[in-house]
Design a protein around this nucleic acid. Structure first.
Lengths: 201, 201
DNA sequence: CTGAAAACTTAACCCGGTTAATGCTCCTGT
DNA sequence: ACAGGAGCATTAACCGGGTTAAGTTTTCAG
């Protein structure tokens, strides 16, 4: 039985998040004090910080849910599939379903969301930190099949490639192209990126 | 004639930086308020922030001086030398002269300095941001010899490799090994890392 | 229904960073 | 040599993110 307590918690969480996104997209992340977000969600400032450890998390908690995705893809790959092949396949699948993390999603709110992240230093920094975590986890997963140093190096390169690809895709969409039209070129770019990565021994 | 004004400026700059490093290494970056650094340097808080735009810069202004180094190495390489070969050579030279940015420097203060950076999130974040800038500049330099996408991808991979190598070297030294003893293995690791990078077309 | 645990509120605080008002000190022109 | 402006300092107050303490309401268990 899902207790009343827990249900309320989820409601408040959602209310705060929604108020935050709305205000931030309207006026910009740095232009809205968190006190205003709290007031707009009908909650006090300490309570807000009990739900979200920092202002940036009001925006990035969705992205944070993808923690360790790369590592999981490698760990759950089919028998006989190479780690990099699994990551390649997974990225292409993301493109196909227009997953926002691939940058290839042209819904206006998603574009605005990405613009806000890229143009707000503290948010961009937080995304980088998140990717550093992912990289570490991926390195650990890769280390089951190769030496430590190679695992670290390849993990760094995979994450770098994904970051470059996502930014590239977002930039083409910002130019006004639709995701539909940009898709083939995004696939080609992904293929090129993974072709540049080393083959694991 | 170096004006008296300018000389004083440099003295104050140095006094603040020295006070900051001393206090931070003694008690930790997050445990020392900048007001205390200012007081200890005999200066007011607004003045301190006129010399250093943010608390983190009290620690990182030395690293910030290396801005765009990778791009410069590529631009100033000898005729007929491949970009990646130039970067490889430059990294090996850094190892040989125990350049702190390679991680292979076992002076106690350097080790403590690195430990502080790695264990303080806001400092680590700032280093990542700095590397993002370097990456962008390197991509621009590489783009003179190849297509844009490849330049971005390779730049990301080079910076990732350097970061992994530096951290690896630092970890080895933290275990107690001397830079002398760690040197051959550090060279081997660098050779391995650059061997994994793609050959530019 | 009662009481302990959970969660919320208000008010105050700390810290990083900025601004405004004021004053001192080096440099420059005559 | 010195008058006065440019440059840089100081103090005091402020803003915004984040935390803490003390006290109040709400949920849940027996």
């Amino acid at each position: 039985m899902t207790g009343l307590r827990e249900r309320k918690r989820r409601q408040v969480h959602e209310a705060i998040s929604a108020a935050a996104i709305t205000l931030f997209l309207e006026r910009g992340f740095d232009e809205v004090p968190v006190a205003e977000v709290a007031a707009s969600a009908g909650v006090s400032k300490p309570t807000l910080f009990k739900y979200f450890p920092a202002k940036e998390d009001l925006v990035l908690h969705r992205i944070s849910d993808h923690r360790g995705e790369a590592a999981r893809v490698v760990r759950e790959r089919g028998a006989g599939e190479a780690p990099l092949a699994a990551l390649h396949r997974h990225f292409l699948a993301g493109l196909e379903r227009r997953d926002p993390v691939t940058g290839l999603n042209d819904h206006p709110e998603v574009l605005a969301y990405h613009r806000m992240i890229f143009s707000t230093p503290s948010l961009a920094a937080r995304v980088l930190h998140h990717m550093a975590y992912d990289e570490e986890a991926l390195a650990a997963a890769l280390a089951e099949d190769t030496d430590e140093l190679t695992a670290l190096l390849v993990a760094g390169q995979v994450l770098a490639a994904q970051r470059v690809l996502a930014r590239r895709n977002w930039l083409t969409l910002v130019e006004g192209t639709t995701a539909e039209r940009a898709y083939p070129s995004a696939v080609a770019a992904a293929d090129r990126a993974f072709a540049l990565l080393p083959v694991l021994p």
